[in-house]
Simulated scan of single mutants.
Amino acid sequence: MNIDDAVTGHTLSDIPKLRILLSIPAAEFNAFIPAATRTALDELGHVTSIAPSDLQSPGAFARAAFDADVFITAWGFPKLDADRLSLAPNLRCVIHAASSLHALVSDDFWATGIPVSQAGAAMAPAVAELSLAFTLNLLRRINRLDHGLRNGETWDGTRNIRRAREICGARIGVVGASRTGRRYIQACQALGADVRIYDPYVQESDPLAALSTDLESLFATSDVIAVHAPSTPETTGLIGASHLALLPDGAGFINTARSTIVDMDALYTEVSSGRLDAALDVFDLEPLPADDRWRSLPNALLTPHLGGATANSRRRAGLIVVDELRRFLGGLPMEHALTRTDLEKMG
């Protein structure tokens, strides 16, 4: 539906332009806001672009925010507490170009009733794809084979590792039927995997309900476990040593969500023993230190928390921002708006 058509008696050209504070870290600005996206924003409002690092002092924030109707934010933007909100008296809407809002909003912000939206949906396909790549890698033992050939193992010795498996028919367990989890599930099923899930929030009417099981059964019957749950107080420490011990010998464990969900010491014990393989995009300490214990394991595949950071996902996030702004300007509900209750269930 055209936004112009949705606004009774008005077109966007009839509505006064908003004053927009666009604050994206300099290193990511062009990825989120390429030329075409910036042109679209300029058509919707008077845009002032200032990096979050330049808004940290109250004075700098006040000068940039005082006249702004809309904040477009990303990582590093100052937390919107009572003091900051008092410096932005005209603020009517916040659109977060990234995913998690926990570092941005506050009790004071929710009390204002100002609508807030985020572009986390842009990252779901990218994270799901990395998780799928990890799955194929662990099933086919690619990281172990590569490590063996590069580090002095004989040809026959490398070929003699535990036999690889195909994803068709593999038993895949998914912890968390999130946006990302659902994309991952679809991808695995398309390749013939037998998928089961653990997510206490899946309703009986949900098509995924037929795949649901308890956490212990999921671990005991899976060739690969992939974590796609949010990081919340409820999920902190959700996966412990007792769950990991249930995984069959040679199984794989994937985490592209948050390390707080897993007992990382228990996971390290299992992986360093050689019983399990792991593929990790998230860690307790980031950046991962050069001498970190995980770096030395040949059966641990590691990436530096970049699951959602593809060129495609960044462009999608910028387009979501533009679309949300158009909807707000046209008097329509934003598609990715969140409430305080929503945020309590999200990472």
Rank of each mutant, 00 (worst) to 15 (best):
V224Q: 00
L215G: 13
D67W: 14
L267G: 13
S49L: 08
S296R: 15
V224Y: 02
C188R: 13
G120T: 07
S231Q: 12
S296L: 15
R162L: 08
I320T: 00
L302P: 10
A35P: 05
A122N: 04
L211R: 08
A317L: 09
G157V: 14
G250T: 03
T232V: 01
Q189N: 12
T8F: 13
D67E: 15
G120N: 07
F109K: 01
R196W: 05
S205H: 13
R196L: 05
R275A: 01
E324W: 01
D81N: 03
W294H: 06
I254E: 03
D4W: 08
L18V: 11
I197G: 03
H96T: 08
F61R: 11
I72L: 00
R340M: 03
L136Q: 01
A187M: 03
A65E: 09
L218P: 13
G192Q: 08
G250V: 02
P52L: 02
R340S: 04
G331K: 00
L21A: 10
V322L: 02
L191P: 11
A241F: 05
P289Y: 05
L267W: 08
F32H: 03
R140G: 14
T303I: 07
A317G: 07
P89V: 15
I24T: 09
L218M: 10
Y201D: 14
D156Y: 12
D81P: 06
W155F: 14
E204I: 10
I33P: 06
H305Q: 08
D83T: 14
I3H: 00
E286V: 11
F71Q: 06
Y198M: 05
F61H: 15
D5I: 05
G59P: 07
A193D: 06
A74F: 02
E270P: 09
A266L: 05
V227Y: 01
S57D: 14
W155D: 13
P333H: 11
R326N: 03
L132T: 03
A251V: 01
A164W: 06
R293P: 15
R38N: 11
R182P: 12
R327V: 10
N2Y: 07
A220S: 06
V202Q: 09
R295T: 13
N255R: 09
F283W: 02
G250N: 03
P115H: 11
D323R: 00
F109A: 01
I72P: 00
R171D: 13
L208E: 13
S99P: 05
S217W: 04
S53T: 14
G308N: 06
Y184S: 07
A300D: 13
A68Q: 11
T310S: 03
A122V: 09
A278K: 02
G331N: 10
L238K: 08
A111L: 06
W110P: 04
G120H: 05
L41T: 02
F109C: 06
L80A: 07
T73N: 08
S100K: 14
L41K: 00
A266W: 05
T256N: 01
R159T: 09
E286A: 14
